[in-house]
Structures are given as C-alpha cells and as structure tokens.
Design a protein around this nucleic acid. Structure first.
Lengths: 219, 219, 219, 219
DNA sequence: AATGAATGAGAGTTCATTCAT
DNA sequence: TATGAATGAACTCTCATTCAT
C-alpha cells in the first residue's frame, strides 16, 4: 500500500536539509496521498495528514507552504509515476498498435493499483486546474509524437494526431474510471481487447454496406 | 445565458406550492448553476447564491435541504438537458455512424454553450459521486443499446458494446474538455471529422501491413 | 464604566437591519473597546470579545469584517467622542487662551475617564496607521483654524499655526499620557495651570535678557 | 544605514564570549532593528530576523532570551543613541533657549535619519511599556534638571518644570512624527523657528489685552 | 557557537444550517 | 412564504520556542 514510499524524487517546495528532514517530508507526502485519495481534497485536513504521518501539526508547514502546495506536488509526482509505469511496460520499440494495447493494459493496471492516487489526479481539475492541464497536455504531446512517428513508419493510417491523442486519452481515462476505479472485476485483457478492436479497426464494417453489392470493389 | 430558466421540471426536494414559490425556487436554481459553474462547489456559498437570486439567506432552506441537494438537482437536470439537446440534433432514425458524428458535434456545441454547467457535472464526481455515476451509467446504457441495435441492423461491426460505449463517451468528454472548455477556437466540424475517421476506421491500415509487400494495393 | 454604551452612532461596516441586530452590534463594540483597551490589539482575541459580549463567535463576523475592522470603527468613533467631549466643555465662543485652558482640562478629564479607549487610539499608530493619521490630521486642522481665527480676532500673536497646532496637540497627548494614564493623582487644574503658563507666555523672561542689564526690571 | 553596528555597548541578555560571538550578536541586533522598524514588532518574526542576519533560527536563542528581550535591548540602546546625538549637537553650556532650539533641531534630524528605529521606540509603549516609560522618564528628568538649572541661572522664567518637561517632550515627539516621520519635506529650521517662537514667548500678546486700550502700543 | 527540525497552542476566519419572527 | 440574526464546529496557517546534534 505504501504507494509513495517508492518515490524516488521528493518534489520541491521546501527541501529538507538533513536526512531526518527528508524522512519527515516523505512521511508527509505519503500520508497526504492517502488522505487526499481516500477523502478528497476538501474533506482531507492538514491535521489528519500530520496525524497519519505521526508528526506535529506545525511540522507540515516546515515542508509545504499550504494544503494546495502538497496537493500539487502529488499531482506532479503522479505524472512522472504514471508515465514511468507505462513506459516501462510498453517497452522501447514496439509497433504502435501493440504499444496501444500494452499501454492501455498498463494504464488500467496502474489505476487499479493506485486508485486513490489516481482519484487525486482527477480531482486536480477542481483544485489545481493548471497542474491538471499540465498533466494531460504533457501526456497528449508525447502521445501525439508517438502517433506521428508511427504514421511516418507506415504503421498506422494518417490522421489528425492531436485530436486522436485526446480521444485516445479520453478512452483510457473513462475505461480506467469504469473498469478500474468503479469496478475492477473484469480482466484487464478483456477491456483491452475490446478497445483495441475499436481503435484499430473502428466501428465501420470493413466493406461498408453497399446499396448495390455488385458495384463494390472497395470503399 | 439564462440557461436554467427554461427548465421545465423543477426537480423534487421541496416543491413550491404557489406560483410565487416556483419563481423563487427557479431563481435559486439559476443562481446556483451560475455560482457552482463559475466558482466550483466548494468556493460557492449559499449566501452567494441567495444574494445572486435576490432572496434572503433563509429562503434557500425553504426549497432545498442542503447545498448538496441543490447541486444534485442541477446535475440531474443537466443529464436531461444534455440528452435532450443531443437527441434533438441527432434526430430519430439515422444510421449509427452518422448518428455518432452528429452526436459528437451536438455534444461539443452543447458544452461550448454551457461551459459552466458542464463543469458542474464533472465536479459531481467529487461532490455527489452517485449522481455522477448515474449520469454516465444512464448515458452508457442508452449508448450501448444504440450500438447493439446498429449491430443488429448490420450497420456496424459487432463488438463488446459496453466497453465501446464507455470508450466513446470518454473520447467525447475529453474532446469536450480540450476543444470546448479549454479552447474553443477550432471549428467543431474539424474535431468531429478527425474523431469520426478514428471511430469509423480505426488506426490500422486498411489492408493490414502484409508480410509480403507486393500484395499491397495501397499503403 | 460602560464607556461605549452611550455611543449614539453605530459606525458602519455591516449595519444591522433589525433592532435586535443593532443591540448585538453595540454589545460587540462595547466588548471590543474593553478588550482592546485592556489588553491591547494583539493580545485581545475575537473569542474574548464575543465571550464578553455574550454572543457566539460567528456572530462577530455578521457585523464586522475582521478584527482590524472593528478596531478602526472604534478609533473613528473615539475621534467623534473626544471632539464632542471637548467641544461641549470648551463651549462656543470663548477667547482662545481660555479655550486652550478649558480644552486641556477637558482632554485630561476625558483621558482619565476613558483610559482604555484612549490607549486604543494611541495603538492605532501600529495597527491602523491611516486611521491614526486621520484622527490627528482632523484634529490638527480644526486646531489650526481656531488659532487662525484667534489671530484674526487679535487674541493671540501671529505665528505658524500648523506647527503650533501639532506642538500643542503633542503637549496635550504627552501630558495626558503622563498625568492621566500613568498617574492621575495630580489635580488636573495644576497641570493645566502649569501648561497654560507655558503656552501663554513661553519660557523666556518677559523682558528678554537685555545686553544692558540696567534696563532689566526683574530677572 | 548600518545604524546599529556602531553600537558600542551590547546590552546584557546573553553576552558573547568570543569575537565571533560578538559579531553574530551584532548581526542579530542590526537585523532586528531593521525588521522591527520596518514591519513593527508583531509582524516581525524571529525567522525573518535570523534570515536577514544570515544565521540559523536557533542561533537567535543563543544570544537573546526572547523576541521581547531583543526588542527591549534595542529600545534601551535607542535611548542612549538619541541622547548622545542630541547632547553632541546641543553642545555643553549654551543658554537654555538656544539649547531648546538646537535640541529640537537635532531631534528632528535624528528622527529623520532613524525613522524606523524611532518607530520602534514609539511601539515600545505597547510591547514593553516599562522600557518605554523608562525611556521618557529618564529623558524628562534630565530635561527637568536642565530647566531648573536655567531658572536658577535666571535664563528662563520660573514654573513647574516637570509639567514643562513633559509638555516640551510631547511637542518634540509630535513634531517629529508629523515633520520627520510622516512628511520630511519642510526644512527643519522652519519647524524649529515656529516652535521656538511658541515656547519662548507663548501665544499671548506681549502686552496682554489691557482693560485700558490707550496703554497698548501694538495689537 | 551554531544549526535547523520539530513542536503545538492558539489565532482569525468561514459558512452551512437553524430558528424565531 | 420569506426573512436575516445567530450559531459554533471546523478549518488553515503562524511562529516563538525547544532541543538534539
């Protein structure tokens, strides 16, 4: 459950100067992740966080400027964490369609394993809009680049990659919400298979229903 | 901008019995929609709402049980409003792919015209999760039914319609966020065209990359 | 001791709309005057004020925006109170020197009777500097006008009345501090007599020390 | 502006034993003078002081017992500084009226050059009342002695010198506030001239309005 | 002598909700 | 139906001070 303890980086704000300080700071980050994730930003309280972290109330303000500041730190951290997780599972140089499948699979697994933390990202839209936008804009840009590269390699059809990136992110996010956060009973593979079919071949019939079947050579 | 005044229904809670009462209740709903949309649930205040509605503070509780109650009423109302708007623009019996195009177009237009109100729906996830789930579950069910019917009619390929429904909703929502709420400068038609291409034909090359390049007709 | 209950005006901020409201507001003003006067601005607490006023904590903020706001209200109020007190005792149309005597006498009596309240005015310099300046600037202007009028009437010698006004105010304030706030054992009349002698005739010998001692009648 | 570094004395509290210690202590005093002067006692913070002094927070308590302690040290120091400055400029043995003029001139110049530090003295009334009283009592006593001596020398009229001392100090303080701290645009000489005229000759006409107008030479 | 992490009491302020009128 | 005064729990944040290193 110790979802934040494996943070390699300790996001800025007010850095600790001693080892003890770093430990305390991390305890606070972990406790905050838990509190925010479980109760939401507004229901979470600083005193709850410090209680969970086993430090005095004032200690919080030694390391963070405000409730919002630690929240932002966590959102930014999640950005790295999500990307790292997915990148690791997608691997370096697969073809795009395979990467999509692996990416969604990794994403769903990630959300299932970090439900609370992911909730926090979604709530950022209403607490730290700029951090939220940054999170998805960064993601979208990388996505777009990957799509463009795949087009260039002749792996996928050409298209408006920016829109595609946002559409694909939206899919993942909603599938994550529905099949990871709300109900994780279905095997990720099934979700992935269903979505892959959609994203790869679309809804349309391969040979679109022709009025006059004879005329058809193809689309 | 009087977005709520044309509410036909006045959602439950505490119905007004007199004409005067109905007017007051509607003033409160409108004011609340504006306040919640502009400032978010937590930053909005009852006193802000009553001030905007030009009634005394106590009057609020004549018509609504709590801050959350009026918020829920608005979320539910939005559900009807969105669906009505889209249904009207998609029309009765088009083929599914066309309906998808029209539906997304209508959705983007709707969000662009009701930015604040739509924000409120998204925030529901953190304020009234059940209302939020209901909102999307209802949507997803209808969506699923439509897809199933289209499959039955032989209009689209078969597939796991539940997943498809959530994926397609996610696309719309994210495209709405990106191209309606954050930046509405691009013509909706372009977004629709780009997404349609994706949802209809997918990313994969029409003739999937053949082992033997000779066989390819186009690439 | 009920020093503020005889306030006729209730300074603005957030006016009460009902009789009950006015009463509550005045209770708060009285309690605040006492608290600020006795403990000083920083040591005084809102909860102390509301406790003394016998209302709930939140009630304070129904009538005042902040701790500073009620403090300012009291400073401004003191300005009126002081002036009214003195004006009443000096009477309408005496000659200037007599007015000075009566004014100082009234001032010392006022400070002796409103020690705490007067302390509050002095502290304003460090809490609400603008209110403090306004207080003395207003006073100084009136003073200056009176001096000018007296000069015009041939009652007193001509001179730079602005400087005179500030100097005379300074005298009064310090004598008030020393002989009213710190130690009120000496009869006001004696202080007044001593200061009048100074302000009327100055320190210099009546016949200024002549080069030629013969001319001196007394020394 | 290094106003405190030339402190010869380092007031008690906790003396430094090493040269390094003395330097640190002085850095703290200087930083505190600046912080208190600029922001006032309550808005100033120990951490602000140590930051300005470029030492760690804990170091403060090596040299001073408390925030109030260092404040007091500065008030006492100011007492010496003010007196020294004025004494130097008034010189040893002038006649009293001339000394008054020179004294006020020196005082105004001093305040103009040490605005912040002087502010600190005034605030002492609300932070360290005893130090404040000591400050002015000491001043008043010296003043009184000077006046008595001048009376004895036949330089000035006899009168109640204690009251005179407080009155004259009040004048100076208020003129300093008005013409040094709030607005220093007017030449000190003009202020001094105007006040000297008042303190030397008073307000009254030289030949007080006689019953028998014939005797009047002027007015 | 110097450091800086840790403390925790206490402050001002907000605001949904209640209730007497 | 409408009012608006009153409530008080709960919150975030500050900062002088202590103490182990």
């Amino acid at each position: 459950m110790n979802q934040v303890s494996n943070m390699r980086l300790a996001p800025p704000n007010r850095m600790a100067k001693t080892a003890r300080g770093k430990i305390t700071r991390n305890k606070l980050l972990e406790a905050a992740a838990k509190e925010f994730g479980e109760m939401g930003f507004h229901a979470a309280s600083i005193s709850g966080i410090t209680r969970a972290a086993n430090v005095a109330l004032g200690t919080f303000y030694v390391y963070f400027d405000s409730k919002e500041a630690i929240f932002r730190a966590l959102v930014d951290y999640m950005s790295h964490l999500t990307r790292a997780w997915i990148a690791e599972r997608v691997g370096p140089s697969t073809d795009r369609l395979d990467a999509e499948r692996k990416g969604l699979q990794a994403f769903i697994e990630f959300v299932r394993g970090h439900r609370d933390l992911y909730r926090l990202v979604m709530e950022a839209q209403f607490v730290a809009d700029d951090a939220y936008r940054r999170y998805y804009n960064d993601f979208a840009e990388a996505y777009q680049r990957n799509l463009a590269a795949a087009v260039a390699r002749g792996e996928i059809r050409d298209g408006k990659n920016e829109v595609r990136a946002w559409a694909l992110m939206g899919m993942s996010v909603f599938l994550g919400l529905r099949y990871a956060i709300w109900d994780d009973s279905q095997p990720a593979e099934e979700i992935v298979a269903a979505m892959s079919d959609l994203t790869e071949h679309g809804l349309a019939l391969r040979d679109p229903p022709a009025k006059n079947p004879k005329k058809r050579k193809r689309g």
